[in-house]
Simulated scan of single mutants.
Amino acid sequence: MTIATAHPNLTLPDHTQLPESDGTFVKNFQEHPQSLLLTDSIYPVLDSLHPDGRYAIGQDCGIYWRLVEPPERGAEAPDWFYVPHVPPLLDGKRRRSYVLWQEVVAPLIVIEFVSGDGTAERDTAPPWERENGKPGKFWVYEQAIRVPFYAIYEVDKASVEVYELVGNRYQRCEPNQRGHFPIEPLGVELGIWQGTYLHQSLPWLRWWDQDGNLLLTGDERAEQEKQRAEQEKHRAEQEKQRAEQEKHRVEQEKQRAERLAAKLRDLGVDPDEYS
């Protein structure tokens, strides 16, 4: 474990004093919508798990796990991650990064979106094997930060790999019968969904509940509610039409009975005697 720890006479930098970015570009136009999709759809689950609101979601934000120069070499910036039991704001200020020696709690899950061939996301090299001392992402998440779940998503292959920390090593998880990967502490499953989001038709990374129901975004929930309201309106209109038809049928039956009674009276028969 190489996470920096405080010395009694040393004041370590906090999230306001460390670089907010390593200066690299977001790899493609799909990454931002993908992060939004993951965040938007899981909010109801996290709000239920944390009624006090104490959780944080990071999107392409730095997780500082050691103090080195330059500081960026001591950080990884997952494309998406979730940390339980920490406030979304720190000391009333927006988070610029997530500093482990300041907060201690590790993310429960980190997700990397592959843009190249996936080598960087699967790099297990420790820092002592590198001239620049920069370890591989896989090693950092497994051995330094010790994230319980690590997912590697490849949109070009329409695939996702999920690793779970068992003991001191990541074990690759097997998908369930739906082709999803259960993330038990969250009560959700992670998998690939082929569909259209923000006008892009792609194999997106999405969440499902434990029963296999897709977790919807706010817009999807609103659209679903709109369709439900329209269906209810249509059902009410059909019910109204049926009521009007029944009223019309009863009126016709009444008129037929009145015509029949009139004919009987013309024949000298009192229809009331047979009622």
Rank of each mutant, 00 (worst) to 15 (best):
T2M: 10
T5W: 14
A6T: 12
A6F: 05
H7T: 11
P13I: 02
F25L: 14
N28M: 01
F29H: 14
Q34G: 10
T39N: 13
Y43D: 00
H50M: 11
D52G: 06
Q59N: 13
C61T: 14
Y64E: 08
W65S: 03
W65H: 14
E76R: 12
W80F: 14
F81G: 01
D91H: 14
K93C: 04
K93Q: 14
K93F: 10
R94D: 13
Y98W: 07
V99Q: 06
L100R: 08
L100I: 11
Q102P: 00
E103N: 12
L108N: 05
F113S: 02
A120L: 14
D123M: 07
T124P: 00
P126R: 06
E129N: 13
K134N: 09
K134L: 11
K134M: 08
G136L: 07
W139P: 00
V140W: 04
I145L: 05
D156E: 13
V160S: 05
Y163A: 02
E164I: 04
G167K: 02
Y170G: 06
P185V: 09
L186W: 13
G187P: 02
V188S: 02
Q194A: 11
Q194Y: 12
H199A: 10
H199K: 13
N213S: 05
T217A: 01
E220S: 05
Q227F: 02
R228N: 13
E230D: 12
H248V: 00
Q255K: 14
Q255S: 05
A261L: 02
L264C: 04
V269E: 10
Y274G: 06
S275V: 00
